[in-house]
Amino acid sequence: MPLVKRPASDTSPSAPDRAQLATKLLDGTDQERWDAARDALEHPDGLSLLGRALASERVPRVREAIFTALAKIDTPDAASVVLPYLRSDDAAQRTAALDALKAMPSAAGTHLPALLSDGDQDVRLLACEIARRLPADESARVLVELIEREDQANVCAAAIEVLAETGGPSSLPALARCGARFPDDPFLAFAVKAAADRIGAR
């Protein structure tokens, strides 16, 4: 019998069976769910399965594996699955979500304008860390825009923290205006001066 080469597009023998993968992801032991999170990367429906599993997963180690798998998928849709967890009441979930988004800066970057304009100041604040992963010019541009309109000092402080690294001389006027808008915030005055000093020293 002649050997017939399998078409490159036919990955069914190596792709885990969907139902089996879903069962492991949703109802397996901790180790099986952890393994399944990694296996889901190879499955065409991996993204939706990972999103469903993340919604119900409570074990930190498995949750981390799911966030890591989503970061490896590295698409705007994968970032969309992660975004709601920035609003979690659980600090560990927020941290894991933010770490995943920072690991896929290009994909997460497509959501950045919306995140930096979000109605929740905590989301805007965390989004500054995603902006840190953009190319420096782009990072500085979006964060200067943010501090020019932002009314929460803590969000400005988070943006200035990043601008101290990514900003340039063109960021300095916006930094000064931002500091002037919050004259009663001692940390912001400190941060503006420190960031200006660092930018000036480069």
Binding site: A91, A92, R94, T95, L98, D99, K102, L126, E129
Partner: peptide, 11 residues
């Protein structure tokens, strides 16, 4: 701090 990468403050 509370929100930090790799391990948050609560943990």
């Amino acid at each position: 701090d509370v929100n930090m990468p790799q391990m948050d403050g609560i943990t």
